[in-house]
């Protein structure tokens, strides 16, 4: 066991835990945002750099601070480590830079993007980004690629988080897609325009943090916030059959995996459940889905959304001071 302090809050965790996992155990107010890390996928993370944190004390044995910001998703904790996330100006500054880099070539076609409303890049931009853009160059664009009859790849929106590559690598056989080219010309693609046709390919849609991989059976059917999610299950011989079914009126518009509070699916589901079971009679309904505070469909459901910016060091100090005075 090791003790780690993140933004002033201490927690004791098992050895080998990463800073990010420890922060998530403490709670969303200290957990760094992630775009590429996915707890269900091995070796994911480290690419997007949004979860950079400052290690102000290395460990009890070696208290020296780490010279650079570190990716919290890939750095394991040491006993006595002290980490600054939202309380570090350096981190906030660097994260703002990362958001700017991620949006540099992202099309911002949110009004016509199916991911809008459940897009992690939207949330990240809202919570950590700047209000205006500093670039006037053309964005890179790609043609849409068809990677099977159920999934569309819109590479222009991709932020190269590698999640879909790791998903294909780890939960399916015979991966046919990966990253081609390099630098800002690199792209997710199948070689040579092959279809992805395994039974679990639909999970690529769920893990995609942006609208690069979308469900063709749902495309342009409805904005996410006009649909109603319910937990449902069915007997499936391929997967657990535990899903979220999204209704608009009486119609089932789409089926997805169940996502936890970090936007990560709890269990990967098969393509039959996802694409072929679009009737209420296919499902045993469990009840309404608990909605994350980050979702737009949570309108009027949430109590208060804490914006991370309100938690910066100065504000924490002021709040603490006023509380003390009141006592």
């Amino acid at each position: 066991m090791a003790k780690v302090t993140i933004d002033g809050q201490t927690i004791e965790v098992a050895d080998g835990t990463t800073i990010l996992q420890a922060a998530r155990m403490i709670g969303p107010e200290v957990a760094p945002p992630t775009m590429c890390y996915y707890s269900k996928l091995k070796t994911s993370g480290g690419y997007c750099r949004t979860c950079l944190v400052e290690v102000s004390k290395g460990s009890e044995k070696d208290p020296r601070p780490m010279p650079k910001l570190v990716a919290s998703c890939r750095t394991t904790i040491m006993d006595g480590m002290e980490v600054k996330n939202m309380t570090s100006d350096k981190v906030i500054d660097a994260r703002k830079g990362v958001v700017e880099f991620l949006l540099l070539n992202h099309p911002l076609d949110c009004p016509v993007c199916d991911q809008a409303g459940e897009c992690q890049l939207q949330d990240l931009g809202y919570e950590h980004g700047s209000a205006k853009t500093r670039t006037d160059f053309e964005r890179r664009t790609f043609d849409k690629i068809d990677i099977g009859n159920k999934i569309q790849l819109h590479m222009t929106r991709c932020i190269l988080c590698y999640r879909c590559v790791k998903t294909a690598e780890q939960i399916t056989d015979g991966r046919v897609h990966g990253v081609l080219n390099r630098g800002d010309a690199s792209e997710i693609s199948t070689y040579i325009e092959q279809a992805i046709d395994n039974d679990f390919s639909g999970n690529l849609i769920d893990v995609c943090p942006v609208g690069a991989l979308t469900d063709k059976t749902f495309r342009f059917k409805s904005r996410v916030w006009f649909t109603k999610p319910v937990d449902a299950h069915r007997d499936c011989d391929k997967c657990s059959g535990k899903t979220v079914v999204w209704y608009k009126g009486e119609d089932v518009l789409r089926v997805t995996g169940r996502k936890d509070q970090w936007g990560e699916v709890e269990e990967f589901i098969c393509n039959t459940c996802r694409f072929d079971k679009k009737k209420t009679s296919d499902w045993t309904i469990e009840g309404p889905r608990a909605i994350s505070h980050q979702s737009v469909i949570s309108a009027n459901h949430y109590t208060k959304m804490v914006k991370p910016r309100e938690l910066t060091l100065n504000n924490i100090k002021t709040i603490a001071l006023t509380e003390g005075e009141n006592k």
Binding site: Y47, V98, T135, G183
Partner: peptide
Amino acid sequence: YHHESCGQCSPCREGTGWMEK
């Protein structure tokens, strides 16, 4: 450096091209 960035992590992938432009 823009041409040689591997494109794995966002600051280098996007930043090198931006600086060149």
